[in-house]
Amino acid sequence: MRICNVFDSIIKTLQRNLDVRARKHEVIISNIANVDTPNYKAFDLIVEDEMSKVDSNEIINNLARTHLFHIPVKIQNGVDVTKSKIQLSKEVSLRGDGNTVNMEKEMAELSENNIMYRISADILSRKFQGLLKAMQVGRRS
């Protein structure tokens, strides 16, 4: 029986996810603050592409497969923030001052990112609650 695996890679994935979302939040905040700055070019942090890449080599083997046809559990090892791309937004400025911030897009991204961050934080929190529950149930009997 493996005890050392209590804090498994899901926690690591969630941690990285929170980190990436926080970075993305910084980017959105910077764009919103500069909505009226002449010649400011809006930029984006491209993280979704990185997040959706599942490394096929990372098949977790510690889940027992008692039958050949059981589906192996694949867990993505999270994304590396340093791998995410920074790119200038492709919006075309229709204003005279050369500013390319699209306010509606930024506000939508702000709330989307906010919700995704809170979901990740919530799942992580529940993960810890589950672990705690398991420990307490064992003690009571």
Binding site: I29, Y117, A121, D122
Partner: peptide, 18 residues
Amino acid sequence: ANVSAIKATKDMVSAALK
């Protein structure tokens, strides 16, 4: 817009603290 952004930041921080 900036006020909403501050609210979102506060939400995220309190989610992280929870």
